[in-house]
Design a protein around this nucleic acid. Structure first.
Lengths: 335, 335
DNA sequence: AAAGCGAGTGTTACCGGTAACGCGAGAGCC
DNA sequence: GGCTCTCGCGTTACCGGTAACACTCGCTTT
């Protein structure tokens, strides 16, 4: 015995026990209708009796299909991604695909590393957050020739499938909503300067320019976004630019943190200061007062990704295209 | 050509180009010191030129080791798990292990399904949240004979490695802290009745009994926990049992939601009502006022899991044991 | 009755790597 | 000079499945 096997039960073990060949066992378990009923029953009971666990690795190698899809997300603690994930899983699960999650921590290099890793694992498709990637990552994706989904943002030059929303337009729309309520000095507050943040900020800027308002009240940091940070940053902004009357926060967490700081300062929201967030997480409708936000259709984005991907995996040709899933401004009576 | 290959570059392609056999290429890439420097250089440049992506599937099949570990988490949107994940990844990543994340949605059946799936993928170890599993899940784990980590809770009968904290003791400790501040009518509020919730509740009950106080003020639901739900549940409790003077919420999200409802009702926290949460998430120190909480050492739990697992994967024998990582009561001046 | 056909099972080859062992050449040693 | 040892690479077999095709029957079909 030159090489000891894993010790687990294999198709061959079942085949020996039943007195057939392993291909028959393989068929009995995968395509039951191709094996006669009595034999199938014997095989199934033998498999159960032996505690057979199919070796997906071997199957994937032989068939060239791993029936798995990698979903890369920037942050595990950000509730934004959980709904996208759920939408995807709901669509892909019934089709027999396993969704593997990878965590990039908002790092392009980590994304590159994960793309590499998952390609080695032979995933059948990759779902990436955002449309920016390192050069090497793009190279890997090209070499692998695997369906790729870029999500959250939109791009004119998608690698393959692109399902997202116009972050810049959303940023501009919320800013306009603030302006419509009579706000004149509207700040922008952001942590973790990722690409989406920059796009939203660009929207904020353009809406202000459009209205002839000042775009100077912008505070950003590279730290990860937390509630506490939202409070601290709001404090800095108010100390620096006291007459602000509206603040557009890059996400709901920061907006909620900012609200808490306002409460600490006994600053009335929205009378003295309007606060707006981004994403439409549950917290903005739980706080007192509620906060304005941009609701993003995350569940539907996930579902759409699953649909498009299944089509591609089912053999549809690669035809790069972007799909805009839109957004909704929800003021929650709070501007 | 009876079966077309995947089209990707393989070791053989590199070998042909360089004029050696594939085993040499394999060695050059995995154990560089075993191949002469000039040849290695030629192989490496050929690999790069051809855009070689190693097929992990094939490697895993041949070597019987997938260099991957599955981490099952109940909820992607719950920030609690992100720190555990980070701790694990930090420990396992440098050792060459890939952490695959699965999402159980707090369902034992889904957990069972995922255990099955990941075992088929040939993961080298499994990390499970909690110590309760379906019978079939236990059976699968036994058949597979793979290192298993059970975390978050503690058990007297671990399957293998168990790293967690005494949820019951933590629940009791926080309740005692409330009692020490003179609270007499202390309610318990929980959503998503999972096992940890039950353990914490048991702690709450025993601390109250110990002090001769009533344990009747308990409100739970099977819904997933959200900020909004915290507010709604607090409202129900106050309407039903007006003279409550303390509420121990099963997690920080609910506690924050409860606080927002108090603000809506202009109920002073903590003067009129003490609020306590669980987990020590960032939000409890961002709100106005801050909230009391039980800080759990999640990062350290993750790191410890990685340590123990590396030992097991390195060949240490299975010796089931529990490791109590403790907790810390943090009142944040808010009881 | 010969040919055709479909259902059910087996044969053979292969997926893309890795383990174990083999073997020749040069180095070091006595 | 002969022996052993190590280095560097090749041979062979194998991991545990699956695809493609072959074969055997019994039953129609013409």
């Amino acid at each position: 015995m030159p090489r000891r096997s894993s010790g687990r039960v294999t198709l061959q073990d079942i085949a020996d026990r039943v007195g057939v060949t392993k291909i028959t066992v393989s068929r009995a378990l995968r395509e039951p209708q191709r094996v006669s009923a009595p034999l199938r029953a014997r095989i199934e009971s033998a498999a159960k009796a032996l505690g057979y666990i199919p070796n997906h690795i071997a199957g994937a190698l032989a068939s060239g299909c791993s029936h798995s899809v990698a979903l890369l997300i920037p942050s595990l603690s950000n509730a934004v991604f959980s709904e996208i994930q759920r939408g995807i899983e709901e669509g892909l699960g019934p089709a027999g695909y396993q969704v593997l999650i990878g965590h990039t921590g908002y790092s392009f290099l980590e994304e590159e590393r994960l793309i590499d890793t998952y390609l080695r694992f032979g995933v059948d498709a990759l779902i990436l957050p955002g449309t920016r990637h390192t050069e090497h990552a793009r190279h890997l994706l090209t070499c692998a020739d695997v369906p790729v989904v870029e999500t959250l943002e939109l791009t004119d030059t998608p690698i393959d499938i692109n399902v997202g929303l116009d972050q810049t337009a959303a940023g501009a729309a919320m800013t306009r909503a603030l302006i419509e309520r009579g706000r004149q000095r509207i700040g922008f507050l952001a942590a973790r300067m990722d690409h989406r943040t920059q796009l939203r900020m660009a929207g904020w800027e353009s809406a202000l320019r459009e209205a002839g308002l000042s775009t100077e009240h912008c505070l950003t940091t590279s730290h990860p976004s937390t509630y506490r940070l939202g409070g601290e940053m709001l404090a800095s902004m108010l100390d620096r630019w006291p007459p602000l009357d509206g603040i557009f926060c890059n996400n709901d967490d920061l907006a909620a943190g900012a609200l808490f700081e306002c409460q600490r300062r006994r600053l009335e929201v929205p009378q003295a200061l309007s606060l707006a967030g981004f994403n439409g997480l549950d917290i903005v409708e739980a706080t007192t007062p509620m906060l304005a936000t941009v609701v993003t259709p995350r569940r539907r984005i996930g579902e759409t990704i699953a649909e498009r991907l299944l089509a591609r995996l089912g053999g549809a040709p690669k035809r790069p295209a972007s799909e805009d899933m839109g957004f909704e401004i929800r003021t929650n009576g709070s501007l």
